[in-house]
């Protein structure tokens, strides 16, 4: 029985200097540029007006009252509950009391929403344009080159991943083509960016997509009707069971200190 034949391909060392290195450097630099480009493009978050701040924080106040009610004496809690519930139900804290009960306007006609979508578009464009260009560049100049050999064996399933652009059936999986190297760097450079730019960078598409999943999420996203939130919070307050934390505190303290 003979040993399995080890494939040897004599590569020109220039392949390393003129293909592998340039692709890597270009990918890293694109990421860096994209980071700074995104920082430039970012519009400052729009300032909230005073009624909006009041609306949002009043809701938080109700939530605080609900979660920390046990610090209050029963009479004080009842007074607060009565006030908050009636104020919520009358819509006293609404930023825009006139639009109460009306259906939400179409989000497409809302300029604030449009701005958010523009931001998303910009992010997508900053991602797609350079990638298209670089992939075209690699396809035009380096397609079909086998540029490196991985130092470890792999199963044949990796063939499509590592050897795209090279149509040879019998080539060992360990050989990597230039196009595949491009894909590997495209998806695998996040730690490098983290190292260079800090963890909060906008260089990689992964973070880009994460940011797009839920734009403007939070207590009061643009889609939610604040009036509905207030009404449901009022209901929550109504049903809460109140217990004073000072009840029996003397005995607790004595038991704790008696040791």
């Amino acid at each position: 029985m003979g040993q399995p034949v080890v494939q040897t391909i004599h590569r020109d060392p220039a392949l390393f200097y003129w293909i592998l290195l340039p692709i890597t450097v270009v990918m890293v630099l694109t990421g860096l540029l994209r980071h700074y480009f995104m920082t430039l493009l970012q519009t400052a978050p729009k300032k909230q007006t005073l009624p909006q701040i009041r609306q949002q924080r009043s809701l938080v106040r109700g939530i605080n009252l609900r979660t920390n009610a046990n610090v209050l004496s029963p009479s004080s809690f009842q007074a607060r509950k009565a006030y908050m519930v009636s104020a919520y139900q009358e819509g006293k804290f609404l930023a825009d009391p006139d639009s109460r009960g009306k259906p939400r306007p179409n989000p497409m006609s809302d300029p604030a929403m449009m701005e958010g979508m523009m931001g998303m578009m910009k992010g997508n464009m900053a991602m797609m344009v350079p990638q298209t260009l670089i992939m075209g560049w690699i396809n035009a100049f380096f397609s079909g080159f086998v540029i490196m050999k991985l130092p470890f064996p792999l199963t044949p399933q990796f063939k499509s991943m590592l050897q795209s652009g090279v149509g040879t059936r019998d080539l060992d999986v360990r050989w990597v083509s230039s196009l595949s190297w491009y894909f590997l760097t495209l998806f695998g450079l996040q730690p490098v960016y983290n190292f260079i730019l800090g963890s909060n960078n906008a260089a990689s598409q992964v973070t880009q997509q994460m940011g797009q999943v839920n734009p403007g999420a939070g207590m009061m996203g643009p889609e939610q009707d604040p009036d509905k939130l207030f009404l449901s919070e009022a209901e929550n307050l109504e049903v809460i069971e109140h217990q004073w934390i000072l009840e029996g505190v003397e005995d607790r303290l004595l038991a704790k200190m008696a040791v």
């Binding site: 004496s73 934390i245 000072l246 505190v249 003397e250 607790r252 303290l253 704790k256």
Partner: peptide
């Protein structure tokens, strides 16, 4: 009495 309870809570 209520003041005393508040102080109790604080040292608790």
């Amino acid at each position: 009495a209520e003041a005393m309870r508040r102080f109790c809570r604080s040292v608790e």
